[in-house]
Write a protein that binds this DNA or RNA. Structure first.
Lengths: 248, 248
DNA sequence: GTCTATAATTCGATAGAC
DNA sequence: GTCTATCGAATTATAGAC
């Protein structure tokens, strides 16, 4: 028996409030109307049950078409996932670039804007973002490498912002790589639990996490703070400046 | 064609440094030697390729046995996952309880110890912990609910520690639920990127993240800090004290 | 308890009509 | 571009010998 135990049927997914996000048309003009519907359906399916537990029948049923219809618009199920991943990561990267970010010249302002935008984007698009975070190793190695590059560029935006604040004295001395990991983790992990009908709007959560990010790097008056909270050089193994990650 | 595109074969997984953790025998005396080997093999497979992309052949091949041997020790593939999940979450909960934690009576010390232990545990057991975080919705609804309860109790340990520090004036006024979410996200998200052969030992990372957690709730001198980093009451929608999560 | 062999099912993808 | 029908492969789990 190769039974499939998908927990959500297409019908159940339709109105589940946990699967609502603000990505009605994240897919731009790049695809036709039917293909966009397929992508939207696939995002819901992948987010609810995972890539491998989703069948091509599930995806096409979500737009009211037969299983074969999918292959008119995409050559394979993996390529449907890849397009979701590519567009999601491209949009997330563009969201922490551009004039709204560049306008913040003060180091603290820059980090605040970055974290606010990064967090709010992941919250607004949390269903698509969840697929982007959870299904990376369902990609082919070639596609995985392309997505990794987009993720690396996003990380670099944060790394530069923090490093500049440390260099100009706005932020405390700290391990830049470690603290950037922590900031990104806030935005990445929210796709696991966030829901639009919960208590936090994307903007409110973005503001709150921006506060946390700034607190992570804020200079503190030495005797206002208990010793261990003051950043200090680490001993033990080598510094983490050359660390590489599994997923970029 | 129902082709399987697993990125890691059993042979490749054997020596991959990214799949090494300190869980040689996380499974206690509860299982026999062969069953423990099956669990260890399954953890590697699930972590590398995901539950649905792992076959029962992969798991049993990891201990040098035939596919049918698995069913002598476990009634189904899902129950292998459930045992991993149950033991992992039980151990993670026990790790933030017990005398070592109770010994820290000062609110700041308590939060520091909690975060250090939570982080270090996830780092030490990052391969098993990755399965625990990423494969939750491959469980049956009944098993999922049991794991959710264990996760809820772990969250409560943090919530109580933060709430007590706020109440006794050690920590700043803040949204307890939101800030606890942020702290847990640090420990949870590290299973995505952590590797034992990287620059951070579990203990070092635990210490660093404990610093970050304390900074999240530290009282700040009002004029040492830029305004937005000072915690303030939120407007907009209702407070998040009754928020529920998808995964607990 | 482990094996070989296979049953029962389901999947991704294609063929060919319209 | 969409459909029905189906192929070939691969899966979970079981049967029965040893």
């Amino acid at each position: 028996m190769a039974k499939r135990q998908a927990r959500f049927t297409p019908a159940e997914m339709e109105d589940d409030p946990r699967l609502q996000d603000q990505s009605p048309d994240l897919w731009g003009e790049e695809f036709g109307e039917v293909a966009r519907g397929m992508l939207a359906s696939a995002v819901r399916c992948f987010a609810a049950n995972g890539f491998h537990a989703t069948t091509t029948r599930d995806i096409s049923a979500g737009v009211g078409l037969s299983p074969a219809a999918l292959y008119v618009h995409f050559p394979s199920k993996e390529l449907v996932l890849y397009q979701i991943m590519r567009i999601g990561h491209e949009r997330a990267l563009a969201n922490v670039q551009g004039p709204e970010v560049e306008a913040a010249v003060d180091s603290a302002d820059r980090l605040r804007v970055l974290t606010r935008r990064y967090t709010a984007w992941h919250a607004r698009h949390h269903v698509a973002a969840r697929v982007c975070q959870y299904e990376l190793n369902a990609l082919t190695p070639e596609h995985f490498e392309q997505i990794r590059e987009l993720r690396h560029r996003t990380t670099e935006v944060f790394r530069e912002a923090v490093a500049r604040g440390v260099a100009d004295g706005t932020f405390a001395q700290t391990d830049v790589n470690r603290v950037v990991r922590g900031m990104l983790s806030l935005g990445i992990d929210l796709v696991r639990w966030y829901r639009l009908d919960g208590p936090d709007s994307p903007e409110e959560l973005g503001e709150f996490y921006a506060d946390l990010a700034l607190r992570m790097v804020t200079r503190t008056a030495p005797d206002e703070q208990s010793p261990a909270t003051v950043s200090r050089p680490r001993n033990g193994r080598k510094a983490s400046s050359s660390s590489a990650t599994v997923t970029g």
